[in-house]
Amino acid sequence: MNKEIRSDNDQLLLRSFIGGDESAITTLIERHRKKVYNYILMLVKDPQTADDLFQETFIKVISSLRAGRYSENGKFISWVLRIAHNQVIDHFRGGKKPAHITSDDAGYDLLNNKKLADPNIEEEMIHDQIEQDVRNLIDHLPVEQREVVVLRHYFDLSFKEIAQQTGVSINTALGRMRYALINLRKLIDEKQIAFA
């Protein structure tokens, strides 16, 4: 039910932003920043590139919203992650770079927004290192287990949605998650990693 409330709030914030309330987009970016950034970082494995692609993603999101190219037929975060995915694909293609859009073009300055600044860099570095360690462990899982973990924890999909996305039963999706957690615990023990 919380996910539904958040999804409804996303739609209300989107309508507010489209209606001229600039602060609504800041709230949306703050709400989904970590998930979108981590998704990009998981794919590109370079913080500098992830920062650039994150900014390009939200500049494209804002431009698309202003141009009326968003329809409320799904979750806002799913739409943003598709844009992020396309930005990553464009990045890896190299030659086919997206048209560079500046913050001025989008009418929103992502870089100089104090609300998006992190207050404590040391805590952020520790948090980032733990996330990197977890992502490295996830990379050692079998493909089916890795897919379920990524869809559940990075895309925030329910097990029903994961089952539909992967073409398996809910019980199979749950089983894959169970085995993924067992394997992650074994990897943590083997590599003697402490998350404290």
Rank of each mutant, 00 (worst) to 15 (best):
D109A: 05
M125D: 03
I126C: 01
K34F: 03
F159T: 01
K45G: 00
F54A: 06
K60H: 06
P142R: 11
V80I: 12
T49E: 07
K3L: 08
V148F: 09
Q165T: 14
I62H: 00
T26D: 11
E22K: 14
I121W: 06
V148M: 00
N38V: 00
R31A: 06
E190Q: 15
T166H: 07
A196T: 03
Y39V: 01
K97V: 06
K191S: 10
L12Y: 05
K114Y: 03
D90K: 11
N9F: 05
Q145N: 14
A99D: 07
R82P: 05
L187S: 11
L43Q: 15
Q129F: 10
V149I: 15
G19W: 04
H91A: 02
N2D: 15
I77F: 07
Y37G: 06
D8P: 07
A173Y: 05
T172G: 08
A196E: 13
L116N: 04
R31S: 13
N86T: 10
Q87P: 03
A84P: 00
G74V: 03
R176V: 04
E123F: 13
H140K: 15
R93W: 02
Y70G: 01
S78C: 04
G167L: 13
F58D: 03
N86F: 12
S169R: 08
V36K: 02
N120H: 15
I193Y: 01
P142L: 09
T57G: 04
M42C: 11
L137I: 02
K160Q: 15
